[in-house]
Simulated scan of single mutants.
Amino acid sequence: MAALQGDLRTATDQVEELAKLSEQTDDPTVPALLAHTRANYALTGGGGDPHRLVADLEHALRTYESCGAVARQLDARVSLGWCYSLLGETSRALDVLEEALRLTETAGETIYRSYVLWTAGFAAWRGGETERARRSLAEAIRLAHKVADPLVITGRLATLAWIAADELEARRAAVLLGAADALGRLAGSPTILLMPYRHECEQSGRRTLGDNAFDAALQHGASMSLENAVAFALGDPSPGVSPADRSPEALTARERQIADLVAEGLTSKAIADRLVVSPRTVQGHIQHILTKLGFTSRAQIAVWAAAQPADTAE
């Protein structure tokens, strides 16, 4: 917790104290806990090479499993999932996290499950599975919202912002980033190793929107309450558009075609390749679709398009 708050001196002192205590016991769980704690410290604030953390976390996990320490297993699996993801080893990350999801489901647990889903969402995005990532992150936010803890929600909003930027949804990315930044100042930063993704998201948004528009969207997100930030992230429909207005006839033929491709799980880049147009043109159509249907996310477009009768598509 000290590292999350940026108090690295206190965090370092705690790790050193644990190291001294570990020399005074034969309990095998204590060296495992020390290795685990050092890895978490590196991930949250101290920085470090994920390659060097994997062996420690794998050792800790094996020890926890042999001792039946379920809560520590879950924490270690989350940290290991992050390390694998940062190394680009998506399959290994998702495998270690699947077991964590099984454990939380069996126990009816919420907080750890939210962290696992966040990590799984990041891993899926890094592995090119954007829609799977969005689903994981949306469920993570819903679970985290039950306890109204901004620390639990901050990282999920930020990851959704990075995905939105990758999909050329620059304004949505800026709003989500602003909300995540504001909550982060209140609750603490999730991990220093993720900062490059935050910087790339901002740079991409400023290139697309320009500084003034980006800053306005960022401020809009920062001014949101926790409730409004969660609603925006989950894509609650605009109150200005009724369900009756969301008929297929509201869209042009090209917009409906793109909506169907969104429902197939294609990214803006993949849609552009399919239709032989630029990604910016695709994103323009998607923005029009969002406005006409009163939606705020691609996920809503996908659900809507999948529910339409096949003979309405042109």
Rank of each mutant, 00 (worst) to 15 (best):
M195A: 15
L234A: 09
L290T: 04
P309C: 02
A11M: 03
V303L: 13
N212E: 13
R134E: 10
G48F: 10
L275E: 06
H51Q: 13
G108S: 14
G45H: 02
D236A: 11
L74H: 00
R171A: 08
A250T: 01
A164M: 15
A173H: 02
L157E: 08
I153Q: 05
H199G: 00
D7M: 11
L293W: 03
T252I: 07
A138N: 14
D75S: 13
T37L: 10
T63Q: 06
W118V: 00
I153M: 04
Q308V: 06
G48M: 12
A272R: 02
A164C: 15
A313V: 09
S223T: 14
A187F: 05
I289F: 04
V282I: 09
E129C: 04
F214I: 06
A217N: 03
Y197C: 06
S66I: 15
C67G: 14
S22A: 14
Q300P: 03
L266P: 02
E227D: 10
T44G: 00
A107E: 14
L251M: 03
S79K: 15
A71G: 02
T291I: 08
Q308G: 03
A174S: 07
D7H: 08
S114V: 05
I301F: 06
G205K: 08
R280S: 09
E17I: 02
V277L: 10
G127F: 09
E255V: 09
N212I: 12
D56P: 05
V96R: 00
H288V: 08
A272F: 04
V54F: 05
Q24G: 13
L157H: 07
A11C: 02
V241N: 01
V303E: 11
T106E: 12
Q283K: 06
A263W: 09
A310R: 04
A179Q: 12
P50H: 04
P31V: 05
P28R: 14
K292P: 02
A76Y: 09
I163P: 07
